[in-house]
Nucleic acid binder design. Structure first.
Length: 859
RNA sequence: GCCGCCGUAGCUCAGUGGUAGAGCGCAUCCUUGGUAAGGCUGAGGUCGGCAGUUCAAUCCUGCCCGGCGGCACCA
């Protein structure tokens, strides 16, 4: 018998699938559609194990759904714009475009080696002019609708690299590349009005019932909707005539007010600073102190009394002081608050420092109003309002409503909803991105280009390799004419955030050849994505942006769906043990020799034998050097074994630990499966009734149970369980091998093999084809329907019932399936072993759980 | 601090209100023309702790302990 040879079989089947165009997505009105999509990769040039796992999961679903009769769309593309290409250009003097397309070629070849059931005819990269030109088209549509606008905003500016940096590119206040101290700069930036959809984005989360709760909670927190009251304080004496507007979620506690606070960069604070040097100094100190996020969070509460006073909205004779405070954020609400220290911890900390009054107005349940006092902890729980005149006796919600009603009646404000979410700044001062299709004209200002001028492509001779924006530096590209007046104008040299590129690609896949950005008819057929698969790190970035863009394009009539992803699955990462030398240097797994002695494991450096420290299990990463290259694994064990292992060892949503032993176990399974098929002999027709026996019936029952279990496990994303069932069924096959080619068992065995080949196909597709061909299956497995099970055959005719006496297992009996109480009791009485156990005991009660267990309660 | 997830064999994980399981690892033996291999058998578990509900709890409920993740001066 020959060993299974993946190097020969795997490429052969991939070619057969490609020749048959087995994965071409076709609109078929006769079948239900299913769109399965994995988050498309950044073309770094190299496939890693995380890709193997992610795309294998999508492939299992795609192959399974195809076999179940769905018309499946399973496409692939490239998230190809972005900084790594420009950095490679700067570091190595290569052209970002050439670098990116080379990487795509390499990664496409590697992905194809994985044997994924992808319709490659739909492939595109976001850096294709054919793609980003369409993006420019809908950008103009949203601009026209007012969903894109320019705004002055504060950004992180790297003075050495001459570019804006994203927040995550600022490390300890310095640019991650240049090391220069990052400056805050106000720049005119393009932004998308995602806040206009904040309510819908929150409300519609409730419709996403096939999303993980975790992601929905994260989005809800990120959008941060809060309902409250926006109102105006009137100044007592000196102060601006328009008053001071504040926002609060606790209007019920207005009678507990102690002071009014404003942010250091509030306009009023600046006005005060203009005539009060000490106020100016305080504001300056606040700005300096707030260098990093961590410092802001831990900073001590500080304030400065402006000397201004405002009147309490419900009592004009009650004055409240106005303080500038370092813990108030200018960009949330109105940048000003009223402070109720008894029921807000921040306010309490503040007044303790500055000796301002604390007036409790919410009485916690069970407390006495005469004695209740607030110490170091503010009371933020439920209670009854007191010390609050007309609000006394109300609960918190009723008091909020009443306070809002009164303020509205006075004309001082109204109930308001405020969001934490900010508009999405999409300008990037980088050349390797989608150019923004507008020009700046000295006469007409900012002018959108007409669609006939699209696409606005990059110049061919773009000069990278220096810091800053290469589009800005290009000698001729930006000089053009104004579409309105025909006079000289300059092109916008900012490009779009790459998250814009990825916020609609799933819709483009429906028809990547369409003249319009989205081929409506095809999009209406394929969307929404039925199953989206990707990492949880995009919970509030890509997944939120894509939802927003979908809604915006739907409102523009370009899409019919209002949510892009009906089902979301967030997969775990691939991890590996880490190894370090005594000097702390990380060592790659392939240079490590492991030895096991009893229960302890030791690691040595291959070659020198130097003892190594075995470290934590962590996500595979270059920095820890704990990566295993997929191609090396494919080379030794084949693609199927690698696919099988990354799906088998952990639940799909959790991390999987890569181990050599694990992949070897998968490889052994592949070989044992092949052995089973290769040594099998087809039964001789017409001989089924010649020999019968228990084995055949038993095999059929186990076989049908397997079909049921694997089907349900795949439906529920429990790939590891599905594989575990397949593993154990192999043992069943081995113990039910027929002796010859005649008799009932030979037929039952053949039937089991036929279904087994189809059940393993989503996981090990090449092996499945090879096995299928070996037993003379018709056509290819990719075109074969999914096995069905006979529910009657998934039940055993005879059940083994454990017998408990007072809850402890004391023996077992066999009973026909479905045996009722009386029948089981009869069997019990006839059983001598059970009788012995009951010697000297009085039976009080016999509990029979049908087909499961018997419990005798005795004393 | 708030929210969520997790805790079952040495490791990675299934599982169920009713007999505790798989793969890897470990041990014994067999095979030595599948051989940088294959096979048989086996050991190994107070199912994180305590209490409650129940005839019966690893599973349900409560509290506690430990690990991981997200959010966090958002008024």
């Amino acid at each position: 018998m020959a060993r299974y040879n993946p190097k020969e079989t795997e490429p052969r089947w991939r070619k057969a699938w490609a020749d048959a165009e087995a994965f071409k997505a076709v609109r078929d009105p006769g079948r239900p559609k299913y769109y399965v999509l994995e988050m498309f990769p950044y073309p770094s040039g190299r496939l890693h194990m995380g890709h193997v796992r992610n795309y294998s999961m999508g492939d299992v679903i795609a192959r399974f759904k195809r076999a179940r009769g769905f018309s499946v769309l399973h496409p692939m593309g490239w998230d190809a714009f972005g900084l790594p290409a420009e950095n490679a250009a700067i570091e190595r003097g290569v052209d970002p475009k050439a670098w990116t397309y080379d990487n795509i070629d390499r990664m496409r070849a590697e992905l194809k080696e994985l044997g994924l059931s992808i319709d490659w005819s739909r492939e595109f990269a976001t850096c294709d002019v054919a793609y980003y030109g369409k993006q420019q088209a809908w950008f103009l549509d949203l601009l026209e609708r007012g969903l894109v606008y320019r705004k002055e905003s504060v950004v992180n500016w790297d003075p050495v690299d001459q570019t804006v940096l994203a927040n995550e590119q600022v490390v300890d206040g310095r640019g991650w590349r240049s090391g220069a101290v990052v400056e805050k700069r106000k720049l005119n930036q393009w932004a998308m009005r995602i806040t206009g959809y904040a309510d819908q984005l929150t409300d519609d989360l409730a419709t996403l019932d096939r999303w993980p709760d975790k992601v929905r909670v994260m989005q809800e927190n990120w959008i941060g909707r809060s309902k409250g009251l926006r109102f105006r304080f009137h100044f007592a004496g000196e102060g601006p005539a328009e008053g001071l507007e504040v926002y609060t979620t606790r209007p019920d506690t207005l009678f507990g007010a102690s002071f009014v606070g404003i942010a250091a960069d509030h306009p009023l604070a600046e006005a005060v600073a203009a005539r009060d040097p000490r106020a100016a100094a305080f504001i300056e100190a606040c700005r300096k102190g707030a260098a990093t996020e961590a410092e802001i969070e831990t900073a001590e509460k500080q304030g400065y009394d402006t000397g201004l006073k405002v009147k309490h909205p419900f009592d004009p004779s009650w004055d409240l002081p106005v303080w500038i405070a370092n813990f108030i954020l200018m960009d949330y609400g109105t940048g000003a608050i009223f402070a109720c220290p008894a029921h807000d911890q921040r306010d309490l900390d503040f007044v303790h420092k500055y000796g301002l009054p604390v007036r409790p107005v919410v009485l916690p349940p069970g407390e006495d109003p005469a004695t209740f006092a607030v110490g170091d902890e503010a009371w933020t729980g439920p209670g009854v309002i007191y010390n609050s005149r007309f609000l006394d006796g109300l609960d918190i919600e009723a008091a909020k409503a009443e306070a809002i009603r009164r303020i509205e009646a006075q004309g001082d404000g109204e109930g308001a909803t405020v969001f934490r979410l900010r508009d999405w700044g999409v300008s990037r001062q980088r050349a390797w991105g989608c150019p923004i299709p507008v020009v700046h004209c000295g006469k007409d200002g900012v002018v959108p280009l007409p669609k006939s001028a699209l696409p606005v492509a990059h110049p061919a001779d773009i000069e990278f390799g220096k810091s800053g924006n290469a589009l800005e530096r290009h000698p001729t590209w930006k000089h053009t004419t104004c579409p309105v007046c025909g006079g000289p104008a300059t092109r916008e040299t900012d490009t779009l955030d790459t998250f814009v590129d990825s916020s609609w690609y799933f819709a483009r896949f429906a028809n990547p050849w369409a003249d319009e950005p989205i081929g409506k008819e095809d999009a209406d057929y394929w969307l929404p994505v039925d199953q989206y698969i990707g990492g949880i790190e995009h919970a509030v970035l890509h997944l939120l942006y894509a939802r927003f863009v979908t809604k915006a394009l739907a409102d523009d009539g370009q899409l019919s769906v209002r949510e892009p992803f009906a089902g979301l699955f967030t997969q775990g990462m691939v991890t590996h043990e880490t190894y370090r030398r005594q000097n702390g240097e990380w060592v790659e797994p392939k240079d490590v020799e492991l030895e096991v002695e009893g229960k302890t494991r030791r690691a040595r450096l291959e070659g020198t034998g130097e003892p190594l420290i075995i470290g934590d299990v962590e996500k595979m990463s270059k920095s820890r050097r704990n990566t295993v290259a997929p191609e090396e694994i494919f080379d030794v064990y084949g693609v199927d074994a690698a696919r099988l292992f990354v799906l088998s060892d952990s639940p799909a949503e959790r991390d999987v630990q890569w181990t050599t032993g694990g992949v070897q176990g998968a490889w052994r399974f592949v070989n044992r499966v092949w052995d089973e098929f290769e040594t099998s002999q087809p039964p001789i027709p017409g001989t089924e009734k010649t020999v019968t026996g228990d084995l055949a019936g038993n095999l059929r029952r186990q076989h049908h149970k397997l079909v049921k279990a694997v089907t349900e496990a795949i439906e529920g994303f429990r790939f590891n369980s599905a594989i575990a069932y397949l593993y154990s069924f192999l043992t069943v096959l081995k113990t039910h091998r027929p002796e010859g080619r005649v008799g009932e068992l030979a037929f039952a065995y053949q039937d089991a093999l036929r279904d087994f080949a189809r059940l393993i196909a989503p996981f090990t597709p090449h092996l499945a084809e090879e096995c299928w061909a070996r037993i003379g299956g018709e056509g290819m497995v990719v075109a074969a329907p999914w096995p069905v099970f006979d529910p009657a055959l998934t039940e055993d005719a005879v059940k083994v019932l454990p017998v408990q006496v007072n809850g402890k297992r004391r023996g077992e009996i066999t009973a026909p399936a479905g045996a009722e109480q009386a029948a089981v009791e009869a069997i019990l009485r006839a059983d001598p072993e059970i009788g012995a156990k009951l010697e000297g005991l009085t039976i009080r009660k016999i509990i029979v759980v049908k087909d499961r267990i018997v419990n005798i309660v005795a004393a």
